[in-house]
Nucleic acid binder design. Structure first.
Lengths: 152, 152
DNA sequence: CGAGGGTCGTTGATATATCCACGACCCACT
DNA sequence: AGTGGGTCGTGGATATATCAACGACCCTCG
């Protein structure tokens, strides 16, 4: 028979719920602040991911992998962004199934104008509140957890 | 003129993105596992919140505050859950605008059957991977950040 | 070559979240 | 009692996420 459930202790529960709540609130805040610039938080992370690349473009599935999104989500998201002129799709020459997603001039302008305030908020409401040690511990936690995640 | 943006350092960026990714993946996993029981993650946290209360009921706005949800979201969510018979609404006798949300027998049964596996997953994929110190640091981070959050 | 199994990305249906305007009510004040 | 400003929760419109099925393509192997 199955072993009796080990419920979370009060400390464990507090940490887990606190984490959930913090993330949710931070995202909400960042989304609200980005709204002024005409970008959603999702738009932002896609553009940021593209910006990180030397040639400012990526395959859909790479984007999905980096962001941890399913292919369907990234596909819908990119289509919407393409409609709005933030990104463009270019057929991949070596694989006729695939596309490269590149930033348009408009996309570049959008993230360039949104980034300073966005980063300032991430600093003010998160990064700058943490000590160097807390930052290290956090990094160790996330990499450990991510490494142990079961495949979907 | 505005000061030049202090971009995130590599460590800061890694911690921030790692946190985002971890949370997203964990939620996706928990949602997938709960799906077998007929509950969504959102259903689960609402029922869990109600379970935590001595009389298993709460006002809508209390629920929203605890979970960090906006009133509209909690209202829609609870309506759906009421449709499915997981919770019931009872007029609040002291405030005619408000409702108490209570768990039905069906709601109680649903969370009772879902909880063991859910908690086991939270342990296996998160809590049990952390040392006691990491847990403490995490708690300190989240409470600090939450305390500093600007009002919406 | 060509058949089968895998991957790439799309699509449409459904579920959920967000935004905003609203009606009902409460309360403090006059 | 009446008025005004606030809170409680609702509802509809729109945006976004999830799920499963699909067509197109790639690749390996016989």
């Amino acid at each position: 028979m199955a072993p009796k459930t080990r419920w979370l202790t009060e400390e464990e529960n507090k940490a887990w719920k606190g984490l959930t709540l913090m993330q949710f609130q931070l995202f909400a805040l960042l989304g609200r602040e980005l709204a002024d610039t005409g970008l959603s938080f999702q738009d932002y992370v896609v553009l940021a991911e593209l910006s990180d690349r030397p040639d400012n473009r990526a395959r859909l599935n790479e984007l999905g992998r980096q962001l941890g999104w399913e292919k369907s989500r990234i596909s819908h998201q990119v289509s919407r962004m393409e409609q709005r002129g933030l990104v463009e799709k270019v057929r991949c020459d070596t694989d006729q199934r695939g596309w490269f997603i590149g930033m348009t001039a408009e996309g570049r302008a959008a993230i360039a104008s949104a980034a300073p305030h966005h980063v300032a908020t991430v600093r003010r409401c998160f990064v700058d509140l943490l000590t160097a040690q807390e930052l290290r511990v956090l990094e160790s936690i996330t990499s450990k957890v991510l490494a142990e995640l079961p495949e979907p």
